[in-house]
Amino acid sequence: MATGTVVRFDEVRGYGFLAPDTGGEDVFVHVNDLREDKHLFRSGLRVEYTPEVGDRGLKASDVQLLEPVRTAAVRRQAPVVGGPDRPGSAESDEDLLCDVLSHTEFRNELTEALLDAAPSLTAAQLVQVRRRVLELVQAHNWIEA
């Protein structure tokens, strides 16, 4: 058995992707390979699965959740760093807060955004675009280490 994190799962289409804890390419998962109700699978949840080689690459079977499903994720807040367009702003500290995401949270949200914007992306294209964006984000320290 392997462990990982749900990157994305589309209940309507009946498939998604898992990020293995050992790293490497995301693993395809189909609704027929879930041991629990498909409505429970959301981005960021930890899972255990059996990796298999399918017709199109790695796929997960016998997938089960490792943790109870929480109703809401709590995000940390950090001040926005002022730039040349915001000198001497008189806004309150609350107006200057933004979400600070972990690498995994950002990766999950990026995956969702890419698939929403271009649902025809193949898994390989998605991984390639996401890898480059994550390199850029990390180079600028826009996410937590």
Rank of each mutant, 00 (worst) to 15 (best):
Gly4Cys: 04
Gly4His: 02
Val6Ala: 03
Glu11His: 10
Gly14Met: 10
Tyr15Lys: 03
Tyr15Leu: 13
Tyr15Glu: 03
Gly16Lys: 00
Ala19Ile: 09
Thr22Tyr: 15
Gly23Tyr: 13
Gly24Phe: 13
Gly24Arg: 08
Glu25Trp: 04
Asp26Lys: 01
Asp33Asn: 13
Asp33Phe: 09
Leu34Met: 14
Leu34Ile: 07
Leu34Trp: 03
Asp37Gln: 13
Leu40Gln: 12
Leu40Asp: 07
Leu45Arg: 11
Leu45Asn: 12
Leu45Ile: 08
Val47Arg: 14
Val47Ile: 02
Val47Gly: 07
Glu48Gly: 07
Pro51Gly: 05
Glu52Cys: 07
Glu52Trp: 07
Val53Ile: 09
Gly54Cys: 01
Asp55Ile: 11
Gly57Leu: 01
Lys59Ile: 06
Lys59Gly: 02
Ala60Arg: 01
Ser61Gln: 13
Ser61Pro: 04
Asp62Arg: 15
Val63Ser: 11
Val63Glu: 05
Val63Pro: 01
Val63Asn: 03
Gln64Gly: 10
Pro68Asp: 11
Val69Met: 04
Val69Phe: 07
Val69Ile: 08
Arg70Ile: 13
Thr71Arg: 13
Thr71Phe: 11
Ala72Asp: 08
Ala72Thr: 14
Ala72Gln: 11
Ala72Cys: 10
Ala72Arg: 14
Ala73Leu: 10
Arg76Cys: 12
Gln77Gly: 12
Ala78Val: 12
Val81His: 09
Gly82Pro: 13
Gly83Gln: 09
Asp85Val: 08
Gly88Val: 05
Ser92Gln: 15
Ser92Ala: 15
Asp93Leu: 12
Asp93Arg: 06
Asp93Thr: 09
Glu94Ala: 08
Asp95Thr: 06
Leu96Lys: 14
Leu96Gln: 11
His103Thr: 02
His103Phe: 13
Glu105Asn: 04
Glu105Ala: 15
Phe106Tyr: 09
Arg107Ser: 15
Arg107Leu: 05
Glu109Gln: 06
Glu109Gly: 08
Thr111Leu: 04
Leu114Pro: 05
Leu114Met: 04
Leu115Pro: 00
Leu115Cys: 04
Asp116Trp: 03
Asp116Val: 06
Ala117Pro: 09
Ala117Leu: 09
Pro119Thr: 05
Thr122Ile: 00
Ala123Gln: 02
Ala123Gly: 05
Gln125Asp: 11
Leu126Gln: 00
Leu126Gly: 00
Leu126His: 00
Val127Arg: 02
Arg130Tyr: 00
Arg131Asn: 03
Arg132Met: 03
Leu134Gly: 06
Leu134Arg: 03
Leu134Cys: 03
Leu136His: 12
Leu136Pro: 02
Val137Thr: 14
Gln138Ala: 08
Gln138Cys: 07
